[in-house]
């Protein structure tokens, strides 16, 4: 079956980790993830500048490796990302900001990608809050 997964929380929230564990279990069970969509504070789960405390899980890093390893389509909402300072090279240049914290495998795009992902999947799973 096909899943679309939307993450509304930053990497330090338990729900971001739940989304990751769900995604890992879905792939392990032979299912497909057609899209991951990071929305609202979920864009912080995509930031390359997140530094997890040494005695805590690096969930942002785990997302990055998971997406890279399985070559998943991981979209970060561009409007939510810009207002939270999560920028790729193109946007940092466009708005003349000093830093880039959204390298590959992430892609900046619009909310339409969430809608399209939900339409092409059998289930849309949303994870947010604590």
């Amino acid at each position: 079956m096909k899943f679309a997964i939307a993450v509304f929380s930053p990497a330090h929230a338990p729900s971001s980790r739940r989304a990751l564990l769900f995604a890992q279990a879905a792939l392990a069970g032979g299912h497909e993830i057609v899209r991951l969509f990071f929305y609202q504070d979920g864009v912080h789960s995509a930031s390359a500048n997140v530094v997890a405390p040494q005695d805590e899980l690096d969930v942002a890093g785990q997302w990055r490796s998971f997406i890279t390893e399985h070559q998943l389509d991981a979209v970060v909402c561009i409007a939510a990302a810009l207002r939270r300072g999560v920028l790729n090279a193109e946007e940092a240049q466009r708005y003349q900001r000093p830093a880039v914290n959204l390298p590959a495998p992430w892609e900046l795009s619009g909310l339409g990608q969430l809608h399209e992902g939900a339409q092409s999947a059998d289930r849309l799973m949303c994870f947010g809050g604590d």
């Binding site: 079956m1 899943f3 564990l21 769900f22 890992q24 279990a25 879905a26 392990a28 069970g29 059998d122």
Partner: peptide, 10 residues
């Protein structure tokens, strides 16, 4: 568990 969560959603 998480595999059970995936199955439950389906």
């Amino acid at each position: 568990d998480y595999p059970g969560f995936v199955a439950l959603s389906l």
